[in-house]
């Protein structure tokens, strides 16, 4: 089953809508609660990344009998060095932002920890595509 959701950059009020919808569906399918949790945590993180950094994005969700694949495509600044961004603690955030507890450099590593497969592609100045796959 295939679903599409739109995400607006800067709309923090509605960030999490897609994760909530996906959660509802996984629960209806009777997917193991811990896998539901992992998927929702990874997706939420990715969704908020679009809201925080990109102009807009689309989330494509594909539900199969034994897996869920989520592709998040955004139009935004892109990530210059993906390998670095995957490192735990790496962050481009200013000290002021870090002071507030954001930009701890845990975003991508956290997504990686909560997904069976994570693929990140990015073109600077154009946008980023994140793919999360979790198996049931």
């Amino acid at each position: 089953m295939h679903f599409e959701y739109k995400v607006e950059g800067g709309d923090f009020t509605n960030a999490g809508t897609t994760s909530s919808e996906v959660k509802k569906m996984l629960k209806q399918l009777g997917v193991n609660p811990s896998i539901v949790k992992r998927t929702v945590v990874a997706l939420y993180e990715a969704e908020v990344n679009i809201v925080a950094h990109a102009y807009r994005g689309t989330i494509f969700v594909d539900l199969e009998e034994n897996s869920v694949s989520i592709r998040l495509e955004d139009e935004g600044p892109g990530i210059p060095d993906i390998d670095k961004a995957m490192e735990q603690g790496f962050s481009t955030a200013s000290p002021e932002v870090r002071e507030m507890g954001f930009g701890a450099g845990m975003g991508l590593p956290n997504m990686k920890n909560n997904s069976d497969k994570l693929i990140v592609n990015s073109v600077v100045g154009k946008g980023t595509t994140v793919e999360i796959i979790n198996y049931f």
């Binding site: 089953m1 209806q28 399918l29 009777g30 034994n66 049931f136």
Partner: peptide
């Protein structure tokens, strides 16, 4: 869980659709 549509995931999938 009350949300679960079926014990069998492929049946649940069909039902959800």
């Amino acid at each position: 869980s009350m949300d679960k549509l079926d014990d069998n995931i492929s049946v649940a999938m069909r039902k959800m659709k």
